[in-house]
Every structure is written in C-alpha cells, then in structure tokens.
Design a protein around this nucleic acid. Sequence first.
DNA 1: TGCTTCTCTGGAATCATTCTAAGTTTAGGT
DNA 2: ACCTAAACTTAGAATGATTCCAGAGAAGCA
Lengths: 152, 152
Amino acid sequence: MEHTTAQHPDDLAQRLADSGLRNTPQRELVYKGILARRDHPTAEEVFARAKAEMPTISLATVYNCLETLIDCRLVRAVHFERAPTRYCPNLVPHAHFHDSKTGATHDIDLPDELLSALKKLLPAGYTADAIDITYHGRCAGEEKPENLKTQN
Amino acid sequence: MEHTTAQHPDDLAQRLADSGLRNTPQRELVYKGILARRDHPTAEEVFARAKAEMPTISLATVYNCLETLIDCRLVRAVHFERAPTRYCPNLVPHAHFHDSKTGATHDIDLPDELLSALKKLLPAGYTADAIDITYHGRCAGEEKPENLKTQN
DNA sequence: TGCTTCTCTGGAATCATTCTAAGTTTAGGT
DNA sequence: ACCTAAACTTAGAATGATTCCAGAGAAGCA
C-alpha cells in the first residue's frame, strides 16, 4: 500500500533517477499520455496518444515504458476481468467502479478504516500487501458517451 | 449478489432445467471437477480432470460448460490480473486471498456489514451489482507445496 | 419417423502481451 | 573528443488463453 502522490510530469525524472533509470522522450510521452486524462487508458490508447507526438514510437516501447512507470510506482495497472490492462496515475489507495453499460471507470476513495476492517478479516498469519476492489454496476446519468474513442 | 448455495452435483440437473438447458455428461463432469476440490482450478485443470473420466471431451466443451455453469449461477469466475480464469463453486459472497509465493487461493468470507459499508462509499446514482475483492500477499506456514499440479 | 434445436468437437482465428535479435543512445571513463 | 558497456528502442515473431466456426451428434417433440 503506497501513499505517495506524484501526479506531475516533472516527478518522472526524479523517480527514474531514484531507480537508476534513464529519462527518455518515450517514457515522458507515455507518462504524459496517462496523466493527460483520468480515463484509465489501455496500452493501445496510450500508444495512440504517444504516436500523435512521436510517430516512430512502437507499441513494444509503450509496454516497456508502462512497466517502468509501474516499477517506479508512478502508475498502477488496473484489471477488469480479462479485458486489456488499463493504467491509472492515481496512487492514493482507491477502488474502481466499472460501469457495465458504458464501460467507463471511476475511482472511489477508500477510507483507512475500511481498509483496516478488510485486513481484520484475514486469518492469523495472512499478510496482505495490496487489496484490489472493483465495483461492477451502473451509474445513472451516464449514457454511452458520444465520443468513446478512449472510453470502454 | 447471489446468496443461493448449491454445492451439490445433484443441484445441477435442477438448475439446468430451470434455465431450459439440457443435462449432459459433459456438464456433469465439468461441474464435478470443480466441486471435487476447492482449489480454484483453471479451465485447463478442469479439462484434465474431465478427460481422466471422458477422454474424448474437448477443451472447447469445457469452456462451453463453464460458461453454462456460470450462467446457471452454480460457479463463479475468478480473475487475478490477466492470469488464466479460475473457477469457484463457492456462491456465498466472499473475497479471495492470493498468495503471491505459492499461487494458492483462499476464500475469505465477507460480513454483510462490510459489503454495505463498501456500497455506502458510492456516490449517489451509482448502483453496484457485484463487488470483487482480492487480497494479494503471503500466508505463513504455506511453503510452495510439493505437489502443485493443480495449484498456482 | 423426421425435423428442429441444443450440444459437442477439432481446428482455425483472435488478440493482448511478451520475447527476440538487432540497431540506437547514453553515461562515464580515458 | 572517443570508446565501451549498459540501458533503450524497435519491428516483427511467438505465446497463450479464449473464442469462433462449421460440421457431426444427441434429444425433444410433432
């Protein structure tokens, strides 16, 4: 459970340096693509955003960069069933609400009490490093958005 | 959130009939394979168990039967990251603890209070049909089991 | 019995992701 | 400045779980 909040492109260089990694244009671009909108993009979507600025960037590089960002704890991977992995720059512990109609994803903040209540459910000897929580349902007033290029 | 408890091979015929589906040897076998052990097998593992009794059964059929069992609410699909889907005959609302060393999976019962506390976190207008909760961590006293054919 | 529908099956197809091998860049040491 | 090793990027091949497909089998019922 990591509470650090970065959220800013400038933090990237620092975090990379801390991990003994290099700051590259590709990594900046990928991070920027995730930070640009809080819409939990897939690798393909990040790829598309990056490509707009650097047409030569490859999908493999996007995957590599995403992996790096996760290692640096600047980004979290989010999974819904076996759908393509989504990437999230919100580092505060939170759950995800997944709208089954529109496919939109919303962050839900988790109070500390709730997290510790969850941990209390574990039998003796069990240690949780992380708890993933996903709500599946519908949120009113959110019809399928006209422009869903980056949604779903 | 479905609370019905079936857990017995005999319930299969009834549930299938209720859904207007046929009871077939393959469906019985697949269900039996999941009920046999509470070890959250993958489709491949269920396939292996079924094949032992019916060598002609195909993997596609196992996938079909699993889908059917899920539709009948006799089985739940469980996902850990993008690893192969696992299948679970425990229908009582519960979370999963995933041991990151051994890969073993344990059910964790969820008190109703906790589920309603979780639902209270949702903004107005959000309705959750289901909440998936997964713990990632280690449980003491469980070294990598000697025989891990069906684990991990 | 014959037809229609539901199932099963093997193999091909899909698709996100990872791997590979080769080319490029970079930080340091000289 | 120059060289080298290590870190990066890239395109394309490979992987692997799952789904699709088209044909063959059973089962219910008119």
